[in-house]
Nucleic acid binder design. Structure first.
Lengths: 218, 218
DNA sequence: ACTAAAAGTGAGTGATTACTCACTTTTAAA
DNA sequence: TTTAAAAGTGAGTAATCACTCACTTTTAGT
């Protein structure tokens, strides 16, 4: 179970969990990711966790609460790197060129995905069917991440490094290229023989050239 | 029901269907797209279609067969525009520049998506959970579409219009940009106020600049 | 008009499901 | 050591599910 690589407190944001509860979480993550929430029974989760079915309901009022308990933290954690104080100062010091920022972001998102692969899978697979998930997503990522990203885009446009188009277009193109790569790499064809260094470089170059402003570094 | 815009013979590749069968298909498409296959009961489909539940099993041996009957034709139709005889001749005559090809492809894929929105949604949502769908996808799209696409990439690389990188990287970046746009436009934020012409142009420009070869048209 | 095949029906079936709850075991505090 | 709270159990429940099948209705061919 790949999520055993994760410390349990990372999963649940430091909450104190019983051993049985941990087993329930781990088993639910595995089954939800593999079969989907709807096709996974609480009975199966219990068996896999080696607990009584009633134990699940001892900790989570409903099956849906179990799903939310798994997925909500991953959304919170997705946002974290974007919550930077004094963004402008950080960009000027550490990411003078948009290439530096891009490379860092791609690597950071990659690390995040590798660490949270199963839970991200669950999130992506379940969002179409659960309004609560969609609302949470909008709140955390739609708003918080996007607002920060807009500032970043404006910053680099002011320096002539990114073409003058709406920030949401930049957002869309950058994210689709990055996640197009990460999803293909880790979710669609994980067993293929990937040259990660080369593909990362190509993806960054693609984005840089695609969005090049008048002042871009050659 | 948006799929009512589709002629029924387009949906089912010309097969003769009874009126009740058509209603079953239409209702199943709607519910599978909205709730997912697993969370949709045959009882619900029957009620929505105004038929007896047994009627579904009169036409489809299992619930899964109903799903496959809906999804398989859309995959076949996805491939169709890529099955061109004498590809080189067509490219030279109609798409001298990669920009022309790109624009045509984006528009063609857009039209396809608009026409098949619900069934594409079902396909995307269900693939992770159904090995048969994944196999069908690999057969139709993984192989057929990709092989053709490789020829197209090689064609434009030979003319210096696309950068010399592996075809699968080109494929990945092009498709993620195109589908990043189409999915955002029609599946994630369909109600937003989109300037389609501008966004199409931006997407094409992004890809063109991102993949520009030494001989690209200025 | 008659007949057989095709299409459709809806009650029923055995299995499965999310959840409850009375009871048992474990843990922690005094 | 005792007591109470917390954690855990598993049989049971009402509801739901995919599917069957005896029967009815409709259609098509002669």
């Amino acid at each position: 179970m790949t999520d055993h690589n994760l410390k349990m407190d990372e999963l649940m944001d430091g909450e104190e969990l019983t051993e049985k509860q941990k087993k329930i979480i781990v088993s639910a993550i595995e089954s939800f990711a593999e079969k989907g929430y709807s096709a996974t029974s609480t009975s199966e989760i219990a068996k896999k966790a080696g607990v009584a079915e009633g134990t699940i309901f001892r900790h989570y009022k409903t099956k849906k609460d179990l799903l939310l308990a798994i997925v909500a933290p991953v959304m919170t954690r997705f946002v974290a790197p974007f919550i930077i104080k004094d963004l402008k100062k950080v960009l000027d010091q550490d990411y003078e060129h948009v290439e530096d920022f891009l490379t860092a972001m791609l690597e950071n998102r990659r690390d995040f995905l590798i660490k949270n692969l199963s839970t991200v899978k669950i999130l992506v697979q379940e969002i179409p069917f659960h309004p609560e998930l969609k609302d949470l997503f909008k709140e955390h990522i739609g708003r918080k991440v996007y607002d920060r990203f807009e500032e970043i885009v404006v910053h680099y446009q002011a320096k002539g490094q990114i073409i003058e188009i709406p920030a949401y277009s930049v957002f869309r193109m950058m994210f689709s290229s990055i996640f197009g790569y990460l999803i293909a790499r880790y979710m669609i064809l994980p067993e293929a023989d990937w040259d990660d260094e080369a593909e990362t470089k190509r993806t960054v170059e693609f984005i840089l050239h695609g969005l090049a402003g008048p002042n871009v570094k050659k």
